[in-house]
Design a protein around this nucleic acid. Structure first.
Lengths: 206, 206
DNA sequence: CGCTAATCTAGAACAAGTTTCAGACTTGAT
DNA sequence: ATCAAGTCTGAAACTTGTTCTAGATTAGCG
């Protein structure tokens, strides 16, 4: 039994520099193609060509198109979390802060609607084989929301509220991307669901 | 300009008996294959063969696999709405009734998890070209929830709460289907979000 | 009935995701 | 420096959704 890799994710052997560079090129090409034409425009052969990697290699790094796009989303989310941390939301209540955070993220996605389409479609289409990666995205999203709530040790009830907010966020995004809801409606729904978090917050002491 | 088909959906010419029968056979084959192996098991060639229809004909009836599966979902939802109407939920508050209704629907889906997988994946993967059909599914779901709430003329606020419940329902389903949440967790989240509907309900007069 | 337009069929063809394979290249250990 | 193991490449093959075509069938109409 090897004792390696006991800390973070299971059995991810460290990548050499060139491998890390390949991985970056692939993710970059993926995001670029997605920004153009969304999910359909991310064609594995094109990603491979764009990132100067053989098709087989692309599949070694990302075992399917969905894996690739979910990884792309992880990448973007990380970036967004960083951005959000720099300018925390200013609302008085947790609900206001969460809603503001989510709408800010929403507007960022609006700027690259095709990219958003590709990532979100991949995320909701992912089957069990992508669970770990999707879960990672979900944890990242949870972290962003909890940051906005501003709690260190949320109760089970609060975690459920956060999950519901997350559900609403994803599904509202899907609805908007498929043209079945306006931005105004998304905003209203986000604000509606964010009330839940206040419901579960103990009255501020003092 | 023909004046026909002015009433319901745009330009759906009435089907002959044999056409109606073909449509039924197709939907039946689709549901059957889906029940076995989920989304991937619904292969257009197999659906065509199973329903004794040429591939080209299948595509004339349903312009894509996603269209087919969304139509399958419409079919199933209609059936379920009928079933639910017969035994309305018994809770005292709107929240209880809605949660009970949704969990009942959820248990029905649990009985055919592969079928559920196929339908839900199709629904969330659908792009703009399927909007009308997806919207129809959404309206049907809304109707089911509103039935449980028991309101004739919901306010805008209540409609937003219903949309949020719907979002949560879909997304929780996706999470469960991909093995990232347990049934218990889904139940909790459904109950959590259903509280919203009570928040918006005016105190009963009397 | 006999005509015409629409529909259906069988099957080939095409597109994009995925797999496979032989050979060239890297890497790490000796 | 050299060898073995692992990785990358280029290209072909395979799978399944989708489109296309030519000919047979059916439906509606005079």
């Amino acid at each position: 039994m090897p004792a390696e890799a006991s800390t973070s994710r299971p059995a991810t052997p460290p990548l050499t520099e060139r491998q890390e560079a390949r991985r970056r090129r692939i993710l970059h090409a993926s995001a670029q193609l997605a920004s153009r034409g969304g999910f359909d425009a991310v064609q594995m052969r094109e990603v491979a060509e764009s990132s100067q990697v053989a098709l087989g290699t692309l599949y070694r790094y990302f075992p399917s198109k969905v894996h690739l796009l979910v990884a792309t989303m992880q990448d973007q989310l990380e970036h967004m979390h960083g951005t959000l941390r720099k300018k925390p939301p200013a609302g008085d209540t947790a609900a206001e802060r969460v809603a503001e955070t989510l709408m800010r993220a929403f507007r960022a996605l609006q700027r690259e609607p095709h990219l958003a389409d590709a990532m979100v479609r991949a995320l909701t289409f992912a089957d069990r084989s992508v669970s770990p990666e999707v879960d990672q995205v979900s944890r990242q999203t949870t972290a962003i929301i909890l940051d906005a709530v501003g709690l260190e040790n949320p109760t089970a009830e609060q975690l459920s509220a956060v999950r519901v907010i997350e559900h609403t966020w994803h599904s509202a995004l899907v609805t908007w991307l498929s043209g079945r809801a306006s931005i105004a409606q998304v905003k209203i729904d986000i604000e509606t669901v964010c009330r839940l978090i206040d419901l579960t917050e103990p009255a501020p002491r003092g």
